[in-house]
Amino acid sequence: MTAQIRQIHQDSGGIYGSPRIHAVLKREGVHVGRKRVERLMRQAGLAGISPRRSKGFTRRDPDADPAPDWPAGPEDIALADPSPQSSSVLEGATVPLR
């Protein structure tokens, strides 16, 4: 049984893990349990390879100009109009101070 598992693992390029090897054996008509395949692979030192995810970070272009810092300070932030004509949702509401 271990020889069959080794052969399937080798034919897959060392990629297949126990679920795929179990599926191949089942397709070939071999009646074997998934846990037995796992145990035999562990004893033989065989393991599948997980698919690697691509790098998820942005690579900085060394030739690009950096983005400007905005807002640079409080003088660059547009504040709400403090005139008495501006309407407010909280007009007339009182907020208790602690």
Results as ranks from 00 to 15, higher is better:
69 D>H: 05
68 P>S: 05
82 P>G: 01
29 G>S: 11
48 G>K: 00
55 K>D: 15
94 T>W: 11
93 A>I: 01
79 L>C: 04
10 Q>H: 15
31 H>N: 13
67 A>V: 03
11 D>K: 02
81 D>R: 02
45 G>V: 08
3 A>D: 15
23 A>K: 10
86 S>L: 14
70 W>C: 03
24 V>Q: 11
29 G>D: 15
67 A>F: 04
37 V>E: 12
28 E>G: 02
75 E>Y: 01
83 S>V: 07
86 S>N: 12
31 H>M: 09
64 A>G: 00
68 P>K: 03
72 A>P: 00
13 G>M: 10
40 L>V: 06
72 A>D: 06
61 D>Y: 06
4 Q>A: 10
59 R>W: 11
66 P>A: 11
4 Q>I: 02
11 D>V: 01
70 W>P: 00
8 I>T: 03
8 I>M: 05
50 S>Y: 08
97 L>W: 05
35 K>M: 15
34 R>W: 11
74 P>E: 13
64 A>L: 07
26 K>H: 15
56 G>K: 00
89 V>Y: 14
23 A>Y: 14
29 G>N: 08
77 I>E: 08
86 S>G: 04
2 T>M: 09
59 R>K: 07
80 A>C: 09
31 H>T: 15
95 V>P: 00
38 E>D: 13
77 I>T: 10
41 M>S: 04
81 D>H: 04
40 L>E: 10
63 D>W: 02
45 G>T: 11
6 R>W: 03
40 L>Q: 05
78 A>V: 15
16 Y>L: 11
86 S>E: 15
90 L>Y: 13
52 R>V: 12
25 L>M: 12
31 H>G: 03
50 S>E: 12
17 G>Q: 05
9 H>R: 04
72 A>N: 04
63 D>S: 07
74 P>I: 06
84 P>R: 11
46 L>Q: 02
85 Q>N: 06
53 R>D: 09
51 P>W: 12
84 P>Q: 12
13 G>W: 09
